Every structure is written in structure tokens, then in C-alpha cells.
Amino acid sequence: MAGEQRNVAPGTDVLIRKVDSHLAMLRGGLHGPELLLAERLAHCLRELVVSTAQASAADRGLVRVAVHYFVLRRESRGRLLSVRSLAAAERVVDKVARQLGRVDLLADLRHDHPSRDALPVGDALLH
């Protein structure tokens, strides 16, 4: 992957650094299935960032939304990131992966949720 990142569009490295630094922070507080989900989300996001580096502005924008949704810090009763927030990030990442035709990068490998994918990402974030 390091070779791929050298020839990518500007801004790609910034997005990957955001994902990596957020994951490093999460590793300090999450364990078990929640940590595995966070690591899977980070992997999916890195791959989406790299694979859309030369794509249309719209596709890159979708990936940017997913990255920002993942790294957004939400407070919940003193915990930095609630499991509910991680699940919400999972839905957004999966929605973006599906819209970009990258079902191989779905974070949720256990279930197929077609009803969640009926709306475009921007609309689905409002629901």
C-alpha cells in the first residue's frame, strides 16, 4: 500500500492520517468486538481513500464524508466513543462502499442490509 500512496491525489494522505490517528486513539479505550470493528472500519476507509484518489470529485467526496464521520468525536456519558456511534460509522462506511461498487470493503461482513442502502449517503445521514 505504501507504493500506492506515493502516487495519489493531494489530500489522500491527510485522510489516511486522520483515520490512522483516530484508530490509534480508539485502541487506548476499546477492546474485543468494538476494537475489531474500529480496525475493520479503518481498513475499509484507507482502501476507499486510495481506490478513489483518481476518481470523480463526487466519489472522493463520499469517501471524505465517511472518513469525517468515523473520526468525529462524540461524547456519551464520559466515554469518548459509544458503541452506538461506532455502529453508525459502520453504516455510513458500508453505504459508501456499496455506492462505489466496493462490496469487498463492507465493514459489516455478518449481515446484508439492503434497506439501509436505498438512500444516497447524504440523505441517509439525516435519518
Rank of each mutant, 00 (worst) to 15 (best):
V63S: 00
P120H: 14
A107D: 03
A87W: 08
L125P: 04
E47D: 15
K95L: 15
L48H: 02
T52W: 07
L109S: 09
V71L: 03
G78N: 08
V65A: 02
H113V: 07
Y69Q: 09
L62M: 13
A89P: 03
G61P: 04
H68S: 13
Q99P: 09
S85M: 06
L126D: 13
L48A: 02
E90W: 01
P114L: 10
S76C: 04
R46A: 00
S115W: 14
A66K: 00
E75H: 13
A87Q: 11
L80H: 06
L81G: 00
D108Y: 03
R110C: 04
A88D: 13
K95A: 14
L109T: 09
V93C: 08
D117K: 08
L80V: 07
A42M: 05
D112M: 06
L81P: 00
A87D: 09
S115G: 05
D104I: 03
V71H: 01
V103E: 15
L80R: 14
L106G: 03
S85H: 13
V103A: 15
P120N: 14
H111E: 13
L62D: 03
V103L: 10
A58R: 14
G122W: 15
E75D: 12
P120S: 09
V63E: 00
V103N: 14
L106T: 01
G101A: 05
R60K: 07
R46T: 01
V49P: 01
V93I: 02
D117M: 14
L100G: 00
D123G: 11
R91E: 09
V92N: 02
A58L: 10
Q54P: 09
H111R: 15
R110L: 11
A88R: 13
S85F: 05
E47T: 10
R60W: 06
Y69W: 07
D104M: 08
A124V: 06
R98A: 05
R102A: 00
R77Y: 10
Q99D: 15
A97C: 00
S82I: 06
A87G: 10
L86K: 01
H111M: 10
L125D: 04
A57M: 12
